[in-house]
Nucleic acid binder design. Structure first.
Lengths: 362, 362
DNA sequence: TTTGTTGTTTAAAACGATTTAATTACCTTT
DNA sequence: AAAGGTAATTAAATCGTTTTAAACAACAAA
């Protein structure tokens, strides 16, 4: 019952032309730049036949011969993390527009897995890669970059490597959100972060420090470094902080904030009565119960769009000069209306993600 | 500077054998069933050379010739939705183990987009598909099924089509969670659902009805049907319900719950003091602020694992009988400890997703 | 008539693997 | 010594495109 796939040959015979001509017409349809000269009538006839037979070019054959797959690989930390899932979605949509297909992979911050994923993707013949590098992946990234495989780093950067990247201005974001806390009257503010050598994390911590220092609060600067696979220890951090009279926490990520707030709640403390909280990334939870003092909203759409556009640019000018672009996105600080009122279950600031001004390039 | 890719030919000449032999060895390495007879020493020599040259078989060539791509397509509603993102992650991990690559696509509940995604994936040569069908996609699904393309439906089913599927026992879940609400003393319970013809949604509503009826509460049965692209109307539902003295809401999905709870908060009501809330799918928000009466926890891992295993089974026995399996997963009802205490910001029930018993097959 | 020229079309060679059918080498057996 | 059998190996066809270089047709210029 299996109907044999219709090939370019079928179209050619049906239309009474050679397969080459069909190929010319089919690839030109996609709007190629090198226009082959094909008689208009013949071209139309071929298109008609192709349409009638419902001809779909075989992707494997095309890739084999041309070396181009119109597929890209996207290597993230974890696609089930809301932040990355949102970005993935934007990349997907944008790629769809350009008629590119996307392969996703999650590293779990494991450099070996990252290396393996990249290998698999390259092996599958992707035209380029968007990668969220993890700790210990520097060497692999450098290798990819010097192999001249189109590459865009996302969210984090790697030192001493010539490649394009799209990142947030993390330092500025860290400083601004710290200042938001301070302007609410808090001074004993501590940061909860990861014990990972990641550019974005380090910059956020730096911003926090700068923010504190600019208000003369250097004596209270304290950053807790958690291992991402030992998240339960966050409860100790909270307990310890409570004893030392800490007033507010600044969480370096989404995941830290959620776990931290859970630890706070479990310990019997209340937000914002006992602890004020601010964090990076927004979250649905914060939208429902508007209890956080402020959060850094990252321009997710821009991350996806800029990364994909950059990558496609690289793919298309592959043989030309290897230009590198660094896109630094501006954070948006969203301050809660109600946090200082000490209430719970009050109207959230925004109904959906789409509201509010979109951050712009620096 | 571009280093030419090493091909099977290079390995063959280096090892002093024919390319056929290399092919035999390379594909046998993967544990094929039809063992070609190759001299052990020669095989080892070939493997050594392949390793030394870092030979990676060209995927396009392999796909073109063999018709198998070791890639699958996964068509979801929206990968940025936490529920689907979690499933995607499980599928990814499991596929990785089997050395399969996964293509993801989001339909936004649009049947045209679903059709297009499936077309693109098939065109890319995927060996099989996992699909979350949306409203209006029945015809497309049937077409795919009768084309004998390995297919597994996820989360929702399509009537009158012979295909495998993995779904929750939605009716049972609906009944149980309704009973959980009733056992807390609520009787004026209304359901907030979608105006979509989706098997899972319909079953959940049915369960709610059965649950209410089994306690003689049929007079209060009322299901609100929202359009997923008109989510803001949920505020009207809440306001209207408040006037009619409704005590509790049962939300049919994650997204409805989040938007509903936001609408409640915006309207100045409090959870659980003014409205009790129960819903399908858990969410990080509910973990932090343990205010919901109960939620249906879906066995996400099982969804991914079962769907992928089924699909691979279909792919591998493609030429044999087209057997269909229907996997129905049991829901787990998670009841909050604190909801009836009328508190906010109390210790949540579980620290992370991994706690608690895992639901089993019916 | 010959030589270009321009616009169309095509034959045939890749691309890099898999897979079939045939061949070789080396034993046994008769 | 011939025939048969088995294990190991290989030549060659094939998958469905893209792409290069050549061929062809028609017509203008020399």
């Amino acid at each position: 019952m299996r109907e044999r796939k219709v090939t370019i040959k079928d179209v050619a015979t049906q239309a009474g032309v050679s397969i080459a001509l069909v190929s010319f017409v089919m690839s030109n349809k996609a709007g190629g730049k090198e226009t082959y000269k094909v008689n208009k009538e013949t071209a139309q006839r071929i298109l008609d036949v192709a349409d009638k037979l419902n001809y779909q070019p075989n992707s494997a054959a095309r890739t084999l011969r041309s070396g181009k797959s119109r597929a890209i690989g996207v290597v993230l930390s974890d696609i089930s993390n809301k932040f990355f899932a949102d970005i993935a979605r934007c990349i997907e949509d944008r790629a769809y527009k350009y008629k590119y297909t996307v392969l996703f992979g999650s590293t779990d911050e494991n450099p070996r897995k990252l290396e393996n994923l990249i290998e698999v993707f390259i092996d599958k013949g992707v035209d380029g890669l968007i990668v969220v590098p993890c700790e210990g992946a520097d060497a692999v990234i450098r290798k990819v970059a010097q192999q001249r495989i189109p590459l865009v780093l996302l969210d984090r950067e790697v030192p001493d490597v010539e490649t394009s990247s799209v990142v947030l201005n993390n330092c500025k974001a860290g400083a601004q959100i710290t200042e938001a806390l301070i302007s609410r009257g808090f001074s004993r503010i501590e940061m909860v972060s990861y014990a990972m050598q990641l550019s974005n994390i380090r910059e956020r911590e730096k911003g926090y420090r700068l923010g504190m220092e600019s208000f003369g609060l250097e004596e209270y600067v304290r950053t807790h470094h958690l291992r991402h696979d030992k998240m339960q220890l966050i409860a100790d951090v909270v307990r310890d902080a409570a004893q030392r009279g800490v007033q507010a926490f600044l969480f370096a990520t989404n995941t830290l904030a959620i776990n931290g707030m859970m630890a706070i709640a479990r310990g019997g403390w209340r937000i914002p009565q006992d602890f004020a909280v601010a964090c990076f990334d927004s979250n649905e939870a914060f939208d429902i119960y508007d209890t956080t003092v402020a959060c850094v909203r990252q321009p997710i759409e821009r991350f996806g769009v800029e990364a994909l556009d950059l990558l496609i640019k690289h793919i298309e000018e592959k043989d030309v000069l290897p230009s590198c672009t660094r896109v630094v996105l501006s954070p948006e600080i969203i301050e809660s209306k109600s946090a200082d009122a000490g209430m719970c279950s009050t109207p959230p600031l925004c109904m959906s993600y789409s509201s509010g001004p979109v951050a712009v390039l620096d």
